[in-house]
């Protein structure tokens, strides 16, 4: 048997050192207190700033489309003559937008008021939470 194996065997015979029975509990208590001090924060994929940028771009695009739409001559014939705007097929672009506005027009005032009320409540809730946090 080699020298290392001999020494290894002797060391393996030594009684193992055992920590106190509550060692694990003590460690986990400290880990949990560390965690409460520095919890892992939820990181959204799209940040708040990102959402605002997307909303702003969407609003700008809609406004531009509406402006372009209103500057075009009225009537189906004139639409057919001026279908393109800087190479863009406007008829295709306006179709979903006009559908959206048609849908919005068809919403009853009661539903619209309901939605507005919910949005207002959400806004005030956010405002309240922010004020409390400060």
């Amino acid at each position: 048997m080699s020298q290392k194996d001999l020494m290894k065997d002797w060391f393996k015979e030594l009684p193992s050192e055992q920590p106190s029975p509550d060692f694990k509990v003590k460690v986990m208590q400290r880990v949990m207190s560390e965690w409460t001090l520095n919890p892992v924060k939820y990181q959204p994929i799209i940040s708040r700033k990102g959402w605002w940028t997307i909303a702003l771009i969407a609003m700008l695009m809609t406004s531009i489309l509406l402006m372009v739409h209103s500057s075009l001559p009225v009537g189906t014939d004139s639409m057919s003559t001026a279908k393109t705007f800087y190479g863009l097929d406007l008829a295709k672009l306006f179709l979903p937008v006009s559908h959206l506005f048609e849908k919005l027009n068809s919403i009853s005032p009661a539903v619209a008021i309901g939605v507005l009320a919910i949005l207002a409540l959400w806004f005030f809730d956010q405002l309240f939470v922010k004020t409390v946090k400060r």
Binding site: S16, E17, P19, F23, K24, V27, V31, W35, P39, V40
Partner: peptide
Amino acid sequence: ILKGDSGSFSQLVERYSHLAFSLSMK
């Protein structure tokens, strides 16, 4: 643990507490 489940750390404590204590003791 890195995903936020601190409780999983207890598994590592369970696995290595004896060896860690033993080395510290030496």
